[in-house]
Each structure stands twice: as structure tokens, then as C-alpha cells.
Design a protein around this nucleic acid. Sequence first.
DNA 1: GTGTGTCAAGCAGAG
DNA 2: CTCTGCTTGACACAC
Length: 334
Amino acid sequence: MRIGYPCVNEAMDCSAANTFRLASYSEERLLAAVAANLACVRRLLEWNVAQGLLFFRLGSGIVPFGSHAVNTFAWQQHFAADFRQIGDYIKANNLRVSFHPDQFVVLNSPSADIVRRSIEELVYQGSMFDLMGLDSTAKLQIHVGGLYNDRELALSRFATVFDMLPAAVNRRVVVENDDRLFPLRDCLRLHALTGVPILFDNFHHECLNHGEPMPEALRLAAGTWHPTRDGVPMMDYSSQAPDERKGKHAASLVETQFRQFLENLHGLDFDIMLEIKDKEASALRALDILREHRLVPAAPSGPAPPLTLPPDPSAPAAKAARRRPQTVSPAGNV
DNA sequence: GTGTGTCAAGCAGAG
DNA sequence: CTCTGCTTGACACAC
């Protein structure tokens, strides 16, 4: 079991989401942004390893316009060594990583053009895992897509497109149950049609379900992951923000709820992504709880490794560092 | 420097 | 029809 958080570390002084406007696209800006993003990804992963957080969702913007026609630069070749080093670090430290392509990736769209661009985006993100040398347990997490007033047709279109995906992408795609359109039951039918693993989101399941109790839902979702091809099942964990709109994620981990949730696992192994607004802060608290429950090894007892490396003053993100001072103390978070 | 409208891209539902 | 939310803010220009 690993614990992780998505994309952003609020305590760190770098961003892996450096970008720029399409209107100001240039090869120079692309090179600078990708270099800064990869350097930050490396530092984020090192910070996570030092803390014992071994699961991480990488941001989709490592290569700005990575699937856009404007980007004809051979970034795969230019940054091959950097991607490879990150991949080596991931493998050496038993890290798990994923991408969550954004809402514009809709494999079941009736528009052939939207499907084509969606596949190109998946190819872009999957190719980053390929460059890292990661196997098919590194996943691309997407939703089923739109309903288009015909649930059956929407599901069958997804299955058709999924079966035609390039092999390098097909083996990485996993489908998450969502909170408004496609609940677990529909996702399980997609799995039956295509073999696609189902990434379970407990909060979405609470919002939209067919009455499956949580332990049963977890068991069903876990059963869609092939042990060697797909690895340990991934899941997203979050909870309702008190007194807020239904579906809004909590600002920070509610420990009693998380402890209760763990009771539902009944020994199932999951890598858990905490979709909580305060990011790594809640992930660290969740990790402490798992250590209490002996679901993960105890923290190493030796002297704590440095939490961050020195910032790279040449990186564009350095200006963000000055706006957002480092706030982590070695004692305060473990 | 600070404030703020806008940014490649889809879809559904609320108001 | 317009606005919001979704895995996540950052850019770019006005002042």
C-alpha cells in the first residue's frame, strides 16, 4: 500500500506546471518550461521519498502543448536522458506514478475529431512514461466521458475506441467511476467489454452508486486489476467538504472518516491517492494513520534526510519561490 | 509590484 | 443563455 497526492506540493518552492500562452509559443519557451518542470518533478519525487509518500500523480503540463500541432519540437529526443533519470529514480525507490489527463480527453465523444485529439493527448502522456522506462503499472486515469442521452451507446463507443488505441496507450489506460454520469456499475460493464481496469473513487461512489456497500465496491474494483500487468489497484480517496456543495472535496483529511474507510478494505491492497485540497499535508497525516495500523512500514529511525534540495536559481520557477516561502520544518510533518 | 481577465481542448447541469 | 466544476493555477498585460 502506498499513499500519494496529486500534482502540487504546497510546501515546496518549485512548480512542475510552468507554461505559457499558445500565442507566445516558441521553441525557446518550450525548452525552458520543460527543463524547469522536469527539474521540479525530480525534486518533488525526492521530497516524497524522504517523507515515505510513494504514490504521486504527475501534472499533465510537463511538456506544454505536448499533444498540440503547434509543438513540432522533438522534445522526446531532447529530454530523453532527463526522463530516463526520473524513471530510474522512480524504479529505484519503488515509487508509483500516474497521470490524470484532463476533461478534454473524451474517448466516447461522437466527434471523430475530439476522439482523435483525445488519443493524441493520451499518446503524449503515455510517451512520458515510456521515456521514463516505466512498465504498464504506471497508469493514465480517465473518465468514461459524456452521456449524450444514450448510456448504452456512450459505453459501447468507449469500448470500440479503447480497443483501437495504440498498444502503448491501451495498456496504461484505467477508468475512474465519476460522481454524476457513470457510476461503478457502468465501469464494471466496460471492464467486462474491454478488460480496462477500474480505478475506484470512494467519494464519487458515495455521490453516485447502485447501492453497493463500500467493502463490496472496493472488492469489485480491485478485481479488475491484473496483478502483473496493472499492479496494485489504485484508488482516489476524498470526502465531502462539510456544509458545502455536494461533491466538493474536503479541505483537509478528516481522520475519523479515513480510519473508518480503512475498515472497509478487509485486507485488500490499494495505492491510495488523496484528493484533498491541502495536498501533501493530508497525505502525511494519512501515512501516519497507515503506520499506526501497520499497513505500511514504520518511518526510518535514522536522521531525517533533507526535505528539499537547494532551489535552482536559473529555473523560471524561482520567482514563485520568492512569492511562496518555504514553510516546512523537519520536525513538523513526520 | 499588484490586480485581474484569460488561457488549447468537453460536457452536463444549475440558474 | 451563461456560468460553474472538473485532477491542478499561471500567464500576460494594465496600472
